[in-house]
Design a protein around this nucleic acid. Structure first.
Lengths: 125, 125
DNA sequence: AGGCCTACTTACCTTCAGGTGGGTATCTGA
DNA sequence: TCAGATACCCACCTGAAGGTAAGTAGGCCT
């Protein structure tokens, strides 16, 4: 399982950080939680077009274990769980900001396509 | 092959940047080239303990394709190839710096082990 | 009564990144 | 004469990441 075999010996800081951000959706989850502050599971799922429930949960659990995400369970009749960033999650996001800017610049340079709502809808089905 | 299926539609800048940095050794290659300015193939291999020749070449080729790395071939009798960062490679590295600092901080927090020369030697065989 | 909502869990399957171990041509040093 | 260095290429294989599709329990809506 991806949950184990982590926290291994690292080469450097970037290596350490990458270990934590590695995963197809993790940076997007980070971004989503940063934007909305707090989100429910289904909200996250809808916000990340194309994620499977399995991967969303798996990533959220790993990020919780890594101390990036806080999970708040409300014992209500229709289950309600709210996810939010911890202090470390917030600082990680801040550390990712320059990389995001670099990526945006690169997209512009190579003229890469961006996932639009329509494309996302197509991906969904 | 890992060489294809890239430059796909991206969700955001981070997504774009991650696509380029993804790969077990790419950030290390970036770091190594940043530190030494220019390095030969065998120097890189020795500098990244545990890397296989196949992966080193594959990553270097992809990074060249992505415009991060410059490859200079000297037509000498014992072959000589020098790798260095392009302008984009340098800026990527700069954008990765805060992430590296975050990772170093995290290593300190969780008390993660760092790959030492000895460990590296062990990994090699 | 039946379907949908919530937040998951589980089993199974595919894909691919990465590793292993071989081979190439040419020259140098022991 | 032959190992070792240079910078690769190639075929094969494994393990892990991710996807698919089903099931779970309780309540709401129609």
């Amino acid at each position: 399982m991806a949950t184990s075999a982590r926290r291994g010996p690292y080469f450097c800081g970037i290596d350490t950080a990458m270990d934590v951000v590695a995963g197809k959706w993790k940076s997007l989850i980070l971004w989503e939680l940063h934007n909305y502050g707090t989100r429910r599971f289904a909200e996250l799922r809808r916000g990340l077009p194309g994620v499977s429930e399995k991967m969303l949960i798996q990533h959220l659990r790993e990020m919780e274990e890594d101390g990036l995400v806080h999970r708040e369970v409300y014992r209500e009749v229709p289950p309600k769980v709210e996810y939010s960033l911890t202090e470390h999650g917030v600082s990680l996001n801040a550390a990712l900001a320059p990389l995001g800017r670099w990526g945006t610049e690169r997209m512009r340079r190579i003229g890469a396509e961006k996932v639009s709502v329509n494309v996302a809808a197509t991906v969904r089905r």
